[in-house]
Design a protein around this nucleic acid. Structure first.
Length: 637
RNA sequence: GCCGGUUUAGCUCAGCUGGUAGAGCACCUGAUUUGUAAUCAGGGGGUCACGGGUUCGAAUCCUGUAACCGGCACCA
């Protein structure tokens, strides 16, 4: 007897082994038709997997959140089958489901072309129409290795070969295609449906290692129905519309050019935005008892040797040899310089914690392929600070930092923030004991700050563990911005010390921390998050005063002057154009407030206010408008 | 850095198999004084990314370089 407990608590008993499909059929033909897989005691299995003992069973249908993963995994297999049919000389490697879709990596001497993608996609539809059953087979490892070697699939054979000997593995067969796979899979290729699309071609290293050969990766997206697919494609279009590179040009915020690859030319409007962010951050730092410093751009290479950067990061540093043969580096980070300030004079425990901030301009020679708009550049400015403190102060400083960070993100319109805890990497400085201590201190501090963290194993900095703060933007994309890193190595290397209460000489701990990360990147994120429609306090131009007739010019000028005198960023539009034209232009330019002034308003001393995105207008007396707008344009905090 | 792609007017793009460049928008000028998302008419503007080569002739074919785009790797 096999007793199957269903999610509603009902128990069904069967005389012998059954499959999930049997149970679903038993419950009803509708469910049997919708069934894609089963969850047995919480674990996802094939619909046709045998159930030979008592268990809890749930039938998985398209409504289940993780059913999409199954679908996408199947899509990867169907794509691989299509590729093997069309290009038999191609070797298959791996093809997992990923967020929004799937990919498969292929090995072949000649790369795929965009035309190949169309052929492959068409063939995938044929395979779906064939509705080939997908069957799971158990194989002996060595037999599987031999089998794939005989097929000339050396990558597959290598993967299976790295599975411990003697273990039974599963292969999935659909039509003539057979692949190593842990499963589970849908019952047949027909279940994939039609809502999929191949998206792009890319190179990818075998086993993710740049020293290995490069494979051809094909990315696709897959959904249960066309509506979801279309929604996803629309979302991609939306993302493209708010691309910071496009908006940067359209809104004349900045530009980039070949002669300064990886740098930003900030135009007046972009720089206004930048300064609004910088001014806000400066006020927040002052309110949180930081001191601000400014350190040199060019520093003798010996300091980087002492700090340890020369060993590990020399390739990323811009270096200069002067006419008199001095070897300098443009600073890639600020910490060694901050330690130099700390080291001036004698520090006492009474000076700690010392929170030293700098809007530090740094240069790193990023690999050419890494550059991306203003998000990944070679010249950038960090909202950097180093907190010199005692071990006992780590917790309080971490708690205070997390609080500040949360407020800042919220002020910029980000409320969904996740936290990752990155522990010791393989390549690191410092003893295991000191790492034990630093990791313990940071994780208990994170707990004290009330953070829920997910572990990011081995991703810590070489000098210490870190917390990484990831914020989610308006269209659901994640951006890692803030960081807090415990550093027990640098104070030692650069000989930073303070005099303790008992007169002994001690090493401070350094907390490296940033909230925005880099201004350039954060501004890129801000642009995309707001789609260029900034809140008042950030908008480069907050108000445009536009006239309907030239008789209103004098009054419009007066309105603008009044607002400007109160600190608002105002422009006038006195051109000889129709008001429709002006409304459209300033709307397209994403100016939050348009004040329209015609003959009536000029006579009455009023303005007609129109907000971006709303066709409504409100006629207000000048005084009232000034107060209202000043209040709205006030930066937070 | 690696794989693939792209580079034509300020922007978006067209230019078939080689015969010395086009459109829309933007810009400039003129007319229009206009009531809430594009008024009309005229005009100017391009060493076709850069360097080599093939050819009587190259935006177009070959080749090298750079930047950019999409991934991969990297991200102290």
């Amino acid at each position: 007897m096999v007793a199957i407990t269903l999610p509603d608590g009902k128990v069904r008993s069967y005389p012998g082994p059954v499959t999930g499909l049997d149970v679903a059929t038993d419950i009803g033909p509708g469910l049997a038709k919708a069934a894609l897989a089963v969850r047995v005691d919480g674990e996802m299995r094939d619909l046709k997997a045998g159930l030979d003992r008592d268990c809890a069973l749930a039938i998985v249908t398209a409504k289940d959140a993780d059913a999409l993963e199954l679908l996408r995994h199947d899509a990867a297999h169907v794509m691989a089958e299509a590729v093997k049919e069309l290009y038999p000389e191609t070797q298959v490697t791996i093809g997992p489901s990923i967020e929004n879709g799937f990919y498969y990596d292929f090995a072949r001497p000649t790369p795929f072309t965009p035309e190949d993608l169309e052929r492959i996609e068409a063939r995938m539809h044929e395979i779906v129409a064939r509705d080939e059953p997908i069957a799971c087979e158990a194989w002996d490892r060595d037999a599987a290795v031999a089998f794939f070697e005989s097929l000339g699939e050396k990558y597959k054979a290598e993967i299976i070969g790295s599975i411990p000997a003697g273990q039974t593995i599963t292969l999935y067969r659909q039509g003539a295609f057979i692949d190593l796979c842990r499963g589970p899979h849908l019952p047949s290729t027909g279940r994939l449906g039609k809502a999929f699309k191949l998206m792009k071609l890319a190179g990818a290293y075998w086993r993710g290692d740049a020293r290995n050969e490069m494979l051809q990766r094909i990315y696709g997206t897959a959904w249960f129905d066309k509506k979801d697919l279309d929604a996803y494609l629309t979302m991609l279009e939306e993302a493209e519309k708010r691309d910071h590179r496009r908006l940067g040009r359209e809104m004349t915020l900045f530009h980039q050019q070949e002669e300064a690859a990886g740098s930003v030319f900030w135009h007046p409007k972009g720089w206004t935005l930048y300064r609004a962010v910088e001014g806000y951050m400066r006020r927040r730092l002052e309110a949180n008892a930081y001191v601000e410093v400014k350190t040199p751009q060019l520093v003798d290479f010996s300091l980087w040797e002492a700090s340890g950067h020369a060993d590990k990061f020399a390739e990323s540093m811009f270096t200069i040899t002067t006419q008199d043969d001095r070897h300098l580096a443009v600073k890639p980070m600020n910490c060694p310089c901050h330690v130099q300030i700390f080291r001036q004079g004698i520090k006492s425990y009474r000076d700690l914690p010392l929170r030293m901030a700098e809007f530090g301009s740094c240069h790193r020679y990023e690999p050419s392929g890494a550059l991306h708009g203003i998000m990944r550049v070679r010249a950038f400015t960090q909202d950097d600070a180093h907190i010199f403190c005692t071990e006992d102060q780590i917790t309080a400083e971490t708690v205070a930092f997390c609080q500040l960070l949360k407020e800042v993100y919220s002020d910029f319109g980000f409320t969904d923030v996740r936290v990752k805890f990155s522990d010791r990497p393989a390549k690191r400085a410092g003893s295991d004991e000191s790492w034990d201590k630093a990791e313990a201190a940071l994780s208990s501090a994170a707990a004290a700050a009330g953070l829920e963290t997910t572990l990011n194993p081995g991703e810590g900095a070489f000098y210490g563990p870190k917390l990484e703060f990831v914020l989610r933007d308006a269209i659901g994309r994640d951006w890692q911005c803030g960081t807090l890193q415990v550093d027990i190595v640098l104070p030692e290397r650069l000989d930073a010390a303070y005099t303790a209460e008992d007169g002994s000489r001690r090493r401070p701990v350094m907390l490296h921390r940033a909230i925005l990360g880099s201004f350039e990147r954060f501004l890129g994120i801000l642009i995309e998050h707001h789609a260029g429609r900034f809140p008042m306090w950030l908008a480069p131009v907050q108000v445009v005063v536009a006239t309907i007739v030239s008789d209103a010019d004098a009054f419009a000028t007066e309105v603008a002057a009044t607002l400007r005198a109160r600190g608002l960023r105002v422009e006038t539009d006195l051109r000889n154009e129709k008001i429709n034209y002006k409304v459209r232009e300033h709307s397209v330019a994403k100016v939050p407030i348009l004040l329209v002034v015609g003959k009536r308003e000029a006579e009455q001393g009023s303005v007609a206010m129109r907000r971006l995105g709303s066709p409504d207008q409100e006629v207000l007396a000048l005084d009232a408008v000034v107060d209202k707008l000043c209040a709205e344009a006030m930066p937070p905090a």
